[in-house]
Nucleic acid binder design. Structure first.
Length: 559
RNA sequence: AGGGGUGUAGCCAAGCGGUAAGGCACUAGACUUUGACCCUAGCAUGCGUAGGUUCAAAUCCUGCCACCCCUGCCA
């Protein structure tokens, strides 16, 4: 058990928790991560899961992973499996994995019968349309169902008949008896059980009635012993109903408490599940794990480290204020993490051939530091020789001001190798540059340079015999930058075609040092002076495909 | 008089009656065998707004304004 005096609240939820712990309203912090297994997680869900896990951890508590699977028509066991993998990737281990269906359906049914006997619920024969009509509006009260005051014994029998399959879908419902005039529409005798003749991925055909979220969720929390149910702000209006169930229906001593916080939104990022699903189904992307998606699987495939996601979410704090965070705030954490961890390599994305005219021997070995910023320094080898490739943009015939790279007659340092000087430009018949003729300064090799020559710039290169061709996939934002909130734009009538950025996937070829042939799927690298890249799962032995996770910051080209 | 929320810099966000933390972005500069990273400096006489209480208000009180969410037998 932790000492409360040693804990400082870092957000309003932790303040509330400390109050409850001090007052004795709760004695420990047990939270839950309750996904409905009906789609893939995205970064918005990550905030919820991370919040539940981190909060419990801070107070010495723990977290359950609970599949909130009360709607068989939307759910699928494959998703449940994917959540366990995603959670593990994020670095969290739930105390236990629970399927609400399997673990709680029986208990919830019992509780519903008890409610009926206590006069707190009734079987209603109104149709869905009739329920909507009698519910009232935002500004007017609803009217009582004509079945509201039927005897408990009659409701009980009918409820048992519902369970026994004697009713068709939609024919009857079980409703909580609360208040049809409540200003909170959720309290106007909400449906708590519906008839649904559907096969559940977990419980099969055992049930043909299923509990509704507002009834099931508080009971699941209570049954599990969850003390703090941390969810997003869209459930704020449901809290009175949550509390009603806990205080009027639940008989246990433990009283879980729901606290809501604002969702995470990213500028220009499309997250809505149904829209992503449509893009997947229409083959507009490579799948749920498309690197342009901010789904967990998409981010992972793109090469974004789990730690960067956690750092980003924790850095943003927890409040109830609506926020739309610029991608640059996330990118900062991606770069920070990758800078710490990614192995450096030299890759020429847009090659320009250079012949070192005074170098005639076989290629020689050079050493490349894997990560100068790492605690332990390791290296790998590459080569330097007569024929090399540099980036097109690292040579200029008409250099702009402060251009520190190679020019005709100028010098530049080749990273980890020699200083070279450009003496001549050889053109093709069509007038384009064919290759550069340079000389190297033999006494300037990295690590043993005694020349004292200073150059303004250093560029990367790949020596011909040490190079192999790879495929590069670069990504633009999936949607046009005109739309700050793409989901809202779609909801307000913008078509998907208008919303999508054209050619947001750009494929090209590059020359990489052979060291990268050791790469495994998912390995991340910094291609020096360019950016961070990750070996994609589509790679084959003959075609290495690297996804560009993110570029390095570039303060030169920006100016 | 439906109800529930939220307003602190371009974007997040601390602050809880004692005179506006921090981060991102941005701008300058330093350093550099990655124009990255690291480092230094700058960046709100102002806290949605109008009053009030107080020696003192982003913090307390009152009114107003703006924006978001809620009428599934979805979660």
């Amino acid at each position: 058990m932790i000492n409360l005096d040693e804990i400082t609240a870092s957000n309003f939820i932790e303040e509330e928790i400390i109050k409850d712990l001090k007052s004795g309203a709760q004695t420990q912090v047990i939270t839950r991560c309750p996904p409905e297994p009906s789609g893939y997680w995205h970064i918005g869900h990550c905030k919820a899961w991370i919040t539940n896990f981190e909060t419990a951890k801070k107070f010495g508590g723990y977290t359950y992973l609970r599949m909130d699977d009360t709607n068989p028509t939307k759910e699928d066991g494959d998703f449940a499996q994917s959540y366990m993998a995603d959670l593990e990737w994020l670095g969290y281990t739930p105390k236990k994995v629970i399927y609400a269906s399997e673990s709680y359906f029986d208990k919830m049914y019992e509780i519903a019968e008890q409610m009926i006997m206590e006069g707190k619920a009734y079987v209603c024969e109104l149709s869905a349309d009739e329920i909507t009509q009698t519910r009232g509006t935002l500004t007017t009260a609803g009217v009582n169902s004509p079945y509201r005051d039927r005897p408990a014994s009659e409701s009980l029998q009918m409820f048992r008949d519902m369970k026994a399959g004697k009713y068709k879908d939609g024919e009857v419902t079980l409703r909580a008896k609360i208040d049809m005039a409540s200003p909170n529409i959720n309290m106007r005798d909400p449906v708590i059980y519906r008839v649904l003749h559907a096969t559940h991925y977990k419980t099969g055909d055992k049930w043909c009635i299923y509990p509704m979220y507002d009834f099931a969720h508080p009971l699941e929390d209570a049954l599990e012993g969850v003390t703090f149910s941390l969810c997003d702000i869209s459930f704020e209006d449901h809290r009175p109903l949550y509390d009603w169930v806990i205080h009027n229906v639940w008989k246990g001593e433990n009283k879980p408490r729901q606290i809501e916080f604002a969702q995470l939104n990213l500028e220009n990022v499309l997250l809505g599940k149904r829209y992503l699903k449509r893009l997947v189904n229409e083959n507009k992307v490579m799948g749920w794990d498309d690197p342009r998606f901010y789904t967990i699987v998409g981010m992972k495939r793109r090469g974004i480290p789990a730690q960067a996601i956690k750092n980003f979410i924790c850095a943003n704090g927890l409040t109830k204020a609506k926020s739309i965070i610029p991608l640059s705030a996330f990118e900062y954490h991606i770069r920070e993490e990758l800078n710490r961890t990614a192995t450096r390599a030299m890759v020429v994305l847009d090659p320009l051939k250079v012949v070192i005219t005074n170098y005639n021997g076989a290629p020689e070995t050079i050493e490349i530091e894997n990560n100068q910023n790492a605690e332990t320094h390791t290296t790998h080898t590459a080569t330097f020789g007569r024929e090399i490739f540099i980036e097109q943009e690292d040579f200029s015939l008409n250099p702009p001001p402060k251009y520190n790279r190679l020019t005709l007659g100028g010098t530049v340092r080749l990273k980890n190798a020699y200083i070279i000087k450009c003496n001549n430009v050889v053109y093709k018949e069509n007038g384009e540059i064919d290759y550069l003729e340079c000389e190297y300064l033999p006494n300037t090799k990295s690590g043993q340079d005694e020349s004292g020559i200073k150059v303004k710039g250093t560029i990367h290169f790949v020596e011909k015999s040490n190079g192999f061709e790879v495929t590069i996939r670069e990504f633009k934002n999936l949607t046009k930058l005109d739309y700050l909130e793409p989901s809202k734009a779609l909801a307000s009538g913008v078509s998907i075609e208008d919303l999508l950025e054209e050619n947001s996937l750009i494929e090209s070829k590059a020359i990489a040092e052979k060291y990268l042939q050791n790469a495994k799927i998912g390995d991340t690298f910094q291609f020096m002076r360019k950016g961070y890249y990750c070996l994609d799962k589509d790679s084959t032995e003959n075609n290495y495909i690297f996804n560009k996770t993110i570029s390095l910051k570039d303060t030169f080209n920006k100016k």
